[in-house]
């Protein structure tokens, strides 16, 4: 399924077909190889731990789901700013030339290495500054069902947005990241939107030339 998608996205950028396809293949293999080498843990344990965290937040915030979304985002952000270091160390990938390449790296390497899924990249904006990740088999929300009151407001997997926000910010990409839809809310699919605002300038730490 996702292979087909990557072909489609190549065809839209007609001039880049030759330049992109070998890269895509190598990103896929990079992702798969690193995943195979990584130490792993039962996904169900991961799911239920995340569930316990969300449920604790529900208790503390008295089911104020807007606040819970924010809390999950912030937790994710704090994870993302550190996770990116590990990601760069493992993959040793060079800087991406454009957002399209970034999207492929996120889907085929990052998601693959850490969660063993490769979300499809879809819905590119016309000026190629925004895209969506179609997340299937989200390991955070396996077997999860939301109570009625949470369905309209809670973005259960919002931690993912935070992680992406933090990680991308560390590589100078200032993005807006949010869920558009979630199967848990009764939507057809789980779609996460990433919009690039601007590329931050490299900042040299104080005291270094």
């Amino acid at each position: 399924m996702s292979r087909q998608q990557s072909i489609n996205s190549n065809q839209t950028g007609a001039s880049t077909i030759t330049a992109q396809s070998p890269l895509n293949r190598s990103l896929r293999t990079t992702g798969e190889e690193i995943w195979k080498r990584s130490e792993r843990i039962n996904a169900e344990l991961f799911t239920l731990t995340y569930g316990a965290i969300v449920s604790q937040l529900c208790t503390d915030y008295g089911r104020n789901f807007v606040q819970i979304n924010e809390e999950l985002f912030q937790m994710g952000y704090n994870i993302g700013v550190r996770l990116i270091e590990d990601f760069l160390a493992r993959t040793a990938l060079p800087r991406c030339s454009d957002l399209q390449e970034t999207s492929e790296v996120i889907s085929k390497c990052a998601f693959k290495i850490f969660l063993n899924i490769s979300p499809k990249v879809i819905n590119w904006s016309n000026n190629k500054d925004a895209f969506s990740l179609l997340i299937e088999d989200n390991p955070l929300s396996d077997f999860v069902e939301l109570p009625m009151d949470a369905m309209d407001q809670l973005w259960y997997s919002n931690v993912l947005c935070g992680v992406l926000k933090g990680a991308l910010e560390m590589v100078q990409l200032d993005c807006d990241i949010s869920f558009v839809s979630d199967i848990l809310r009764g939507d057809q699919q789980t779609e996460l939107r990433i919009k690039l605002n601007k590329i931050l300038k490299d900042e040299i730490p104080i005291g270094e030339d």
Partner: peptide, 24 residues
């Protein structure tokens, strides 16, 4: 055969529980 995720993300998640609880 069970579904797996990278152990690193699990570790980061459980360690993040502490600052999360403090922030809360």
């Amino acid at each position: 055969s069970l579904r797996k995720v990278n152990i690193l993300v699990f570790q980061m998640l459980i360690n993040e529980i502490i600052p999360l609880s403090m922030g809360l």
